Simulated scan of single mutants.
Amino acid sequence: MVHNHMISELDYSCLSLPQIFDEVEKRRQISMAMIYPFMQSLREAPFPAPGNTVKIKSFIPDKGTEIISLTRPLDSWLEHVDFRTLFRCLTDEEVLLVFAAAVMERRIVFIAEELSTLSQVIHAVAALLYPFTWQHTFISIVPEILIDVVMAPTPYLLGVQKRLLEQVTDQSDLLVVDLSEDKEDTFLVRSGDEKSILPPKLQDEILQALRNRKEKATVEELNRVVSEAFLPFFVKTVGHFASYVTRKGSGQPGVFQSKAFYKAIESKTTRHFVKKFLQTQMFDLFIQEMEQQPASLQQGIFHKKIVEYQEKKKREKAKKK
């Protein structure tokens, strides 16, 4: 039986829905075989736009077909995020390494004794990806009955209690991050290339920006420093996307010109990174949403930062002339 306090800590993908796990548990009590059709219908359902709802039909013996409504939250960036635990458990360099693996949509497992540590860290890591959204399995506390999820070949962010560690570390090709205070090594399993994923200059800029925080920063102060460290990374690497969404007329859906987009990047290391990032599901979904949205609707903090950055670049160019 999954304890209720665990269920409330669970997310699936970015539909923050304990409800999904209630549904899984309901089916598990009847038969394990019933979980799979439910998860399959969930997987096949179209991913809702922010704020929208998707309805899933599901059959339960003796009860007939149920319709389950799942809603994706609106852009609630940083609303429920507390970065303090992440930066208490890991050094800035280690956070950067985890961020790099997450950006490449790899399989990442976090290990800790405390449920709250797992939950806070995993939500914080997902928030670092803003304006992109983790599109794959996301379980902040994996109950023992679901521990086999670590065998899945697809990307995931998982939180696993330390007592279940042995069931995780026999896997290769993943990043296992120990958050415990008494750890000898932070990375119990790693691919080894994580340090070379992000362009070196941009890595340095993130680390430099993180050093601006106070020793005992409040949640809000730390959130601001962290967002000012990580958001510019995406502004500088892919912030020019809007110029490469071509539209036949105003109000028409656009088409993203990916080749021209990454060829426009001057820095070779950035271009190399972006070429890989273009293949992620998070970028793909982001661009699909941008293609569907009229350009006039593209607002929000990411858009604002892009405009600021582009204006700054124009001013710098003008000075050079």
Rank of each mutant, 00 (worst) to 15 (best):
V2K: 07
V2L: 09
V2P: 06
N4W: 05
H5I: 14
I7T: 11
Y12V: 04
C14G: 03
L17W: 14
P18G: 05
E23C: 10
Q29H: 13
I30K: 12
I30T: 15
A33W: 02
I35L: 11
Y36K: 15
P37T: 09
F38E: 01
F38P: 10
S41P: 02
R43V: 11
R43F: 10
P46E: 01
F47R: 10
P48G: 00
P50C: 00
G51Q: 00
I56N: 07
I56Y: 01
T65M: 09
E66Y: 08
I67C: 11
T71I: 00
W77P: 02
L78K: 12
V81C: 12
R84T: 05
E93W: 03
E93S: 12
E94Q: 15
E94W: 07
V95N: 02
L96W: 00
A100Q: 08
A100W: 08
E105W: 14
R106K: 09
R106E: 12
I108F: 03
L115H: 03
L118Q: 03
V125C: 04
A126Y: 06
A126F: 11
A126M: 07
A127D: 15
L129C: 12
H136Y: 06
I139W: 13
E144T: 01
I145S: 04
V149C: 02
V150D: 02
V150A: 01
P153K: 06
T154C: 08
T154Q: 11
Y156I: 05
K162V: 08
R163L: 08
L164C: 10
L164Y: 12
Q171L: 14
S172M: 07
L179W: 00
T186A: 08
V189F: 01
S196G: 09
P199T: 09
Q203A: 15
Q203Y: 03
E205A: 04
Q208I: 06
L210A: 06
V219M: 06
E221R: 05
F233D: 15
K236A: 13
V238E: 10
F241H: 15
Y244Q: 15
K248M: 04
G254K: 04
G254M: 04
V255H: 05
S258H: 05
K259A: 10
E266K: 03
S267W: 00
R271E: 12
V274H: 06
F277E: 06
F277L: 12
F277S: 07
Q279S: 04
T280M: 14
Q281I: 02
Q281L: 09
Q281T: 14
M282V: 01
L285R: 09
L285T: 10
F286V: 02
E291P: 12
E291Q: 14
E291M: 15
Q293Y: 03
S296C: 06
Q298C: 13
K305F: 11
I306F: 00
V307M: 08
E308F: 01
E311M: 07
R315S: 10
R315L: 06
A318G: 02
K319F: 08
K319W: 04
K319I: 09
